[in-house]
Amino acid sequence: MFTGIIETLGEIVNIEKEESNLHLYIKSTISHELKIDQSVSHNGVCLTVVGLSDGTHKVTAIDETLKKSNIGGLHIGNTVNLERCTMVGGRLDGHIVQGHVDQTATCIGKEDQHGSTIFTFNYSPDLLNLTVEKGSITVNGISLTVVNSKDNEFSVAIIPYTLEHTNLGNIGIGDVVNLEFDIVGKYVSKILSLRS
């Protein structure tokens, strides 16, 4: 489990394709502290550390992950948001995040508000995921608060600190991000759909 509070950014330094899998090599300030078999969130995708070397760590994304997330579109030099699992007894500063991306979304708006930046994202309604006003959403692994919730669109207001310390600062119109919808909301939606 994660909280959506990004620890650091990692840089993709190598990518290897093996059959339908993608091996990613990431250099970061926490890579030297990681252990083999440890779960780490990469842009909101929970991936297992399978290799360590000289301040880099290696993870493998399988075909299902590549279909559901933006991981397959990463290139050498791109940055990813990194978060290690929540420790039992630790603070839940964001919200409950599983590291299971539900779908991707496209940035359709980025507006400087002279103190914050408003991002607007559009996603396919086909999977019946939903947001609620002032509810939680995970965008590229970042726990954020929804504003202007619509059927297949929502916005988030980003403070300068978050813009500087995550890869949202690199996101522009047309870029694809990972979404994980609030787990509590997903269960409530499922229960209500079974009653109708």
Rank of each mutant, 00 (worst) to 15 (best):
154 F>K: 02
136 S>V: 05
97 V>R: 05
148 N>G: 10
47 L>A: 01
18 E>S: 12
139 V>W: 06
28 S>C: 12
9 L>P: 03
194 L>N: 13
19 E>A: 14
69 S>P: 08
125 P>T: 07
14 N>G: 11
145 T>Y: 04
14 N>T: 07
102 D>S: 02
139 V>R: 04
99 G>E: 03
113 Q>M: 14
88 V>T: 12
91 R>F: 09
56 T>P: 00
99 G>P: 02
61 A>D: 07
89 G>K: 02
138 T>S: 14
107 C>M: 08
99 G>K: 01
113 Q>W: 05
138 T>R: 08
181 F>C: 01
34 L>F: 13
152 N>C: 12
4 G>D: 03
134 K>T: 08
49 V>K: 07
95 H>E: 00
104 T>S: 07
18 E>L: 08
173 I>L: 15
65 T>W: 07
12 I>G: 00
55 G>I: 05
28 S>K: 11
148 N>A: 07
170 N>I: 00
132 V>W: 10
97 V>P: 06
72 G>K: 08
28 S>T: 08
28 S>L: 11
43 N>T: 09
119 F>S: 02
172 G>T: 13
81 N>E: 00
7 E>C: 08
4 G>A: 08
78 N>A: 13
66 L>C: 10
100 H>F: 03
56 T>M: 14
12 I>P: 02
77 G>Q: 10
96 I>L: 15
89 G>N: 05
35 K>M: 13
144 L>Y: 11
19 E>C: 01
47 L>W: 02
21 N>C: 14
150 K>R: 15
99 G>V: 03
81 N>Y: 03
115 G>W: 09
189 S>W: 00
193 S>F: 05
90 G>H: 13
174 G>K: 04
195 R>G: 08
97 V>K: 05
123 Y>R: 07
185 G>S: 10
105 A>L: 07
65 T>M: 01
151 D>F: 12
67 K>Q: 13
32 H>S: 15
171 I>V: 14
151 D>G: 00
110 K>V: 14
161 Y>C: 02
81 N>F: 03
14 N>V: 00
122 N>I: 10
1 M>C: 06
53 S>D: 15
194 L>H: 09
83 E>Q: 06
133 E>I: 03
85 C>W: 00
125 P>A: 09
153 E>S: 14
190 K>H: 15
108 I>H: 10
163 L>D: 13
71 I>W: 03
4 G>W: 03
151 D>R: 14
